[in-house]
Nucleic acid binder design. Structure first.
Lengths: 352, 352
DNA sequence: CGCGTTCATAAACGCGCGTTTATTCAAATC
DNA sequence: GATTTGAATAAACGCGCGTTTATGAACGCG
């Protein structure tokens, strides 16, 4: 069933059918109704390939996950809840707006070509990059696709370069403010000796989260004890070992803010293994709002990025830009991260 | 840059370029090299839309998640680890084989039209259905797309109908055998009073897992204590409440096999909340190998479906069928589920 | 009545590529 | 040397649709 068939059945020409489908104004109601009736009767849908070939948008968004240190034969996305959370939100929002979503993972050096390929072969209207690293942009044909790109949580140090020369939109979680929520929450509950478990320092997220911690502590006139800052490298095993060291050295803080949930969970496990009670002895605040943190006991108090907000904005921006070359879109938008209070922070009773 | 440009630059006709690209045999090495050189020099890629329009495959696979009881504004896929695990594996395998992956979620009644739409508009080479329910097939244009469909974990009671009349391939996890692994593992470690936490009875998974439990217990000459069978409905909150009831009635089994990890985690939390130790007092085996089970303490012993195996086969079948109408593909394949022994099962010391 | 105008719509062209058919030219056969 | 054969490749057509251009009918006005 193609538009020509519809035209014949409706007793009009193919171009009239096309005008009806694309909602052009210069077609009388009478004719429009006649054509619509046939279209509905035969449940006709235009071929998306022919449409795109003839110049229409593909109505498809590409989502590219850049995953470092991926392990052959292991699940890549599932390993990090926030990857799937972003994807989940994007699929939901995009589908609502009538967009198709194409998913690709970039694990190896040569996988970067997938981005260009998707833009050229599939004519995707826009691409969302998640997990972008410092050198990522050098590996894709940035000039050709820059104004169709939305990047989540991109590296700060290249940000100024980008904003001034490229037409890319960056959506960032405001990690610094997020951490200040955590610090203030702990202070309200009587904590003073607040520690921090850091992520991989080469990433934007880790740096901003730690910076936010230092700033917020200073602002609240609390000192940071070096021994209470552990380097967990975003890795549960490393976090466990670091916490073990702290236990051995008897240098345990009242509470720890962690750069992600997984490190918090590992540290809590470690403390438990050596006889401590969480949250009674030590309190914890995580980051990312993973399912694991939600299910554990005590339920982890954590900081939750605005997955839906960012996904929605990303789709909107791609929609806007693909329909208007000169659409005015900000270079960068920061998204608020919410504190989700659950059960891993205890009230500290002051000793008089 | 299109094939015509390449043709001019190489001093041949467009059809010769096409023959080179599609690897036809009737083109001399000399000519082939000449054309290839120009193609590489300009990094030319044929337009996928034009190719598909001209009759080639779209080289795209659709993945459809049917999600019941989805909550507006909540993450759909992330809520169930195994959804993302399947997706993860499919993206990985499909990308390796040069396929694009299109993801859609089906939450509402009208979303079922997305399946037909994707097949017609996007000419996807095949579709994978995950979370299929009894009435799903009635809601899609099954006749038109049946031989391009692979279904994961489909309902048993309609299986015979399907296998005989439709050309659909079903990939199932062998849940019954899986549960027998769990039962035998518990027996080996000295458990005799083995309990079970059931899922939603209307689903294939829940039924097969419980059936497997009953059969395996019988086979091993153990009796099932009715009070040790809890109905958790695949829901962590329900599982918690059911376990609470069991505690109140002092009817706690030595160990529980759970129809999914989330119920196991909730039940363990409940026991802990009321002073029991897991695994010392009560042991647990979960199902699905979620990240949460991997991270908790004690690490959950669980049954893990063959995500990669099923994903690989699904992609292979779609590839096969889309290249050979009469390809001989089995109606159903059962996949082995592995027991992943971790720390949530204790050795029971016999009292002499 | 004759001519310019406007509106509805039909016909024609192009999107980029695969494939079928036609053409060319050289080698081989008689 | 004339004719056939075959390989190489150029030209032409179709995939289904959007869009531009052309056509024709209806209308208004002098």
């Amino acid at each position: 069933m193609k538009s020509e068939d519809i035209a014949k059945l409706a007793g009009v020409s193919r171009s009239t059918v096309s005008r009806v489908i694309n909602d052009y104004s210069n077609v009388p109601d009478e004719t429009r109704r006649k054509v619509m009736k046939v279209i509905e009767e035969y449940d006709y849908r235009p071929n998306a390939f022919a449409r795109t070939l003839a110049g229409k948008k593909s109505e498809t968004i590409g989502v590219f996950f850049i995953i470092e240190n991926s392990i052959e034969g292991e699940l890549q996305l599932t390993y990090n809840d926030f990857y799937t959370a972003y994807l989940d939100a994007i699929v939901d929002v995009a589908n609502q707006k009538g967009y198709y979503v194409l998913v690709q993972t970039i694990c190896k050096e040569e996988d970067y070509a997938k981005v260009n390929k998707a833009f050229r072969e599939k004519r995707i209207d826009g691409g969302i990059l998640i997990g972008t690293r410092e050198d990522t942009l050098a590996k894709i044909e940035i000039d050709k696709i820059q104004d169709k790109l939305v990047i989540f949580d991109y590296e700060l140090n290249t940000l100024s370069y980008l904003a001034s020369t490229k037409n890319i939109t960056i959506l960032n979680s405001n990690d610094e403010v997020a951490i200040s929520f955590a610090v203030e929450h702990l202070i309200e509950r009587g904590h003073k000796h607040i520690g921090f478990i850091k992520g991989v320092e080469s990433t934007l997220s880790a740096r901003r989260r730690y910076d936010g911690f230092l700033k917020s502590m200073k602002l609240n006139l609390l000192t940071v004890n070096e021994n209470h800052v552990l380097n967990g490298e975003f890795d549960q095993n490393v976090a466990y070992k670091e916490m073990k060291k702290a236990i051995d050295n008897k240098m345990i803080a009242d509470s720890y803010i962690c750069a992600n949930d997984y490190m918090a969970i590992a540290a809590i496990e470690c403390l438990r293994d050596y006889g401590y009670n969480v949250p009674k002895d030590v309190s914890f605040v995580g980051f990312d709002n993973t399912r694991s943190g939600q299910l554990m006991s005590p339920k982890l108090t954590t900081l939750t990025p605005d997955f839906f907000g960012m996904a929605k904005k990303a789709v909107e921006i791609i929609h806007l830009k693909s329909n208007d070359e000169n659409a005015n879109v900000p270079d960068m938008i920061e998204y608020k991260v919410d504190l989700l209070i659950r059960d891993s922070v205890e009230n500290v009773i002051e000793v008089q």
